[in-house]
Design a protein around this nucleic acid. Structure first.
Lengths: 150, 150
DNA sequence: TAATGTTTAATTGTGTGCAATCAAATTGAC
DNA sequence: GTCAATTTGATTGCACACAATTAAACATTA
């Protein structure tokens, strides 16, 4: 009854499994959820964790640089960074050489978070339980696509 | 100066490019953004579009079934579905045989949306500009991982 | 049938994402 | 130097996501 031949319901391109976007969307949320219990111990959300990965590596970055690396704009980053500033984990100050820029720096408490976070990557890999080769192959493909589309 | 040997900043597992989660997270948002201008013409968001993909195929689904297929809970779906109901695109009614369930059905305007949406899959593939073989390979890998983790 | 437990949506609260707009600072052409 | 254009963050408003709680309906079992 529901198979009206004039409808595109049976168009295979319309089925979730045949799209690239849906598994990407669903997997992204599932993996973020896999991080959640580990990050809860650090009182961090997943996007906040990404900001710290960058700050632990670079010590200081402007909002613009964070946005470029994470593909996020200031409408997302500003409130997120203000929450981290309130916890005294990061500092926010204008660049004296260009007052339009805001430099984000690590405060001691934020620096110390790293010690507690350092096991997370291994724990996630263990949790996902993927063969190392599959993990690597997928990672390379996704990174290549990311760079191509960026 | 920033290379304190006691820090894990140089731990390669801590770098964005070496993680699986980050490209997944960034790609998911980038591809959703690629849909946005196409969906704007239909006055749909990306998650709303996913709901319609399922409804066009199945005509009727409960909130629970939608949630299982999309990996979303009622806290996300209920307000989304109420917005679609307000536009008279879908109907929401209790299942008389089990009053706990809410059945989501297509209204005529929602059914007709499909005609305008049917070119979207092809347009997205064209927009992403990926070789068909790469697209297929990645799709299969992501779906396999999704099923494994679900 | 009465008590208990389970299933299902809805609600509430917090935190992203992102488009659109605004405002301040800087840069460039003249 | 001055005006216009550009850069950069901040703000606002809307729509997810999701944890946690609540409430109603159903199922089970004594």
């Amino acid at each position: 009854m529901s198979n009206d031949p004039s409808s595109n319901a049976s168009n295979p391109l319309f089925q979730l499994e045949n799209q690239l976007c849906f598994p990407l969307y669903a997997l992204s949320r599932m993996i973020t959820k896999a991080y959640q219990p580990l990050l809860l111990e650090l009182d961090l959300t997943y996007p906040q964790y990404l900001v710290f990965l960058l700050l632990w590596e670079h010590q200081e970055l402007t909002v613009k640089e964070l946005g470029e690396k994470l593909f996020l704009d200031s409408g997302t980053l500003t409130p997120l960074l203000k929450r981290l500033e309130q916890k005294q984990w990061i500092s926010r100050r204008r660049d004296p050489r260009d007052e339009r820029s805001v430099i984000i720096g690590l405060l001691p408490a934020g620096q110390q978070l790293q010690a507690r976070a350092c096991q997370i990557p291994e724990e996630i890999i263990a949790k996902l339980n993927m063969p190392q080769a599959d993990f690597e192959a997928l990672r390379l493909q996704l990174n290549a696509l990311l760079i191509q589309l960026a």
